[in-house]
Structure formats: structure tokens, C-alpha cells
Amino acid sequence: MIQSFFNAEIAAAAMPIVLDGLLNTILLSLLVVPLGLLGGLILALLASVRHPLVRWPLMAWVDFFRAFPPLVLLVLLFAGLPFAGLELGGFACVAIAFFLNTGAYYGEILRAGIDSVPSGQIEAARSTGLSRLQSMAYVVLPQAVRNVLPDLMSNTLEVVKLTSLGSVVAVPELLFQARQAQSVTYNPTPIVMAAVIYFLILWPLVRLLSRLENRALAARR
């Protein structure tokens, strides 16, 4: 039984394919995490503009992309856009979907962080002649990010997990490669390998997050 669940011979043969997938998962994460953060930053900065013409569309945007299942969004982009005359390929679709979906989440976290910085900080900065944007960049954002670091980390963890969605649109990341290997070997070993690898790369992040959360709790006490 164990033999068929994890077969050493098959593992050795599948290793290069699976490692190739791991590499792509890492590259994909390195693309979509900054992309999501960028989207989030844009949304959070827009949220500090209180004008109703900015506020309502922004709220609708964030709500929409938080409510929309990311897998559905991805498939929609991949299968739907070609009919609009836009053939983008799996990788680009993943990038866009993550920018929209995880950007909305990062945006809400950063917005809460910005709101947590007392208004006196901006007033002090502005009173010395710093522009609105400079006050944001040098005074507010560093404090905002520090205040919501555990939440940013936790969201990042989710984003890395979500990169496995890329397998649905044939992006050769870890899960996709493992399934490829499984389908040619008729053996679940490559999937087990992928599962172990996911755990090994995510577990240190989870530990780090716990420590951050504990420290944040201790600081609040």
C-alpha cells in the first residue's frame, strides 16, 4: 500500500518535473505577491481620497473582487477574454486575476493600517512642508505597514497557496507539474511530493507569522 502511495523509483523519475514546478511556483509567487501589494497600495491610497466620486466606485471595486471567487475569475479571464479578442495565456491571466483579487485584500489591510496612524502624524509632516504624497511615503506608510504586518504576512501566505490555481490554466507550477507526472506514471507519488514541498515552504512562513502575531499581542498588552 505504502509502495503505491509513495514509490521511490517513481519519485526519483518525477523529481526533475516536480522541482521544475517548485521553481515556477516560487517565480509565480515572486510575481503575484508584489503585484497584489502594488494593487493594494493603489487602492489604499485612493481610499484616503474622501471624495464621493472616488469613494463609491472604489468600495464597489473592492467588494466585487473580494466577493468574486478567484478560481472563477481566473477561468473567466482565461476562457472568456479570447472571445473579446484578447488571447493572454495562462501566466498573464494568473497575474491579472491576482492583481485584482489579492490586490483587493491587500488594499483593505493597508487601508486599515493607514487608518491606524493618528492624524497628528500627517499634520506634523504637512506643517513642515512635506506634500501629501511625501507624508504618506515617509511618515504614514512605514507606521501603517508595521501596524498590520501580521495581516500582510497572513494574506501573503494565502496568496502563495493560491498560486496552485495556476494549474487550472496550464501554468506549469508545482501542482500542475505534479499532476502531469502523475498522469504519465499512473501513480500518486508526485502529488505526495508536491504536498510535502508545499508544506516545507509554507511551514516556516506560518511559524514566522505566529511569532509576529504573538509579538503584536504582547505589544498590545
Binding site: 493618528p118 497628528g120 502624524q121 499634520e123 506634523a124 509632516a125 511618515v139 512605514p142 507606521q143 508595521r146
Partner: peptide
């Protein structure tokens, strides 16, 4: 300008 609550940048 100097404020009642100092408003120094804590970071």
C-alpha cells in the same frame, strides 16, 4: 508648528 501631543514620528 508645535502640537500639544508632540506628533513625533515614532519610527
Amino acid at each position: 508648528m508645535v502640537f500639544q501631543s508632540f506628533n513625533l514620528y515614532p519610527h
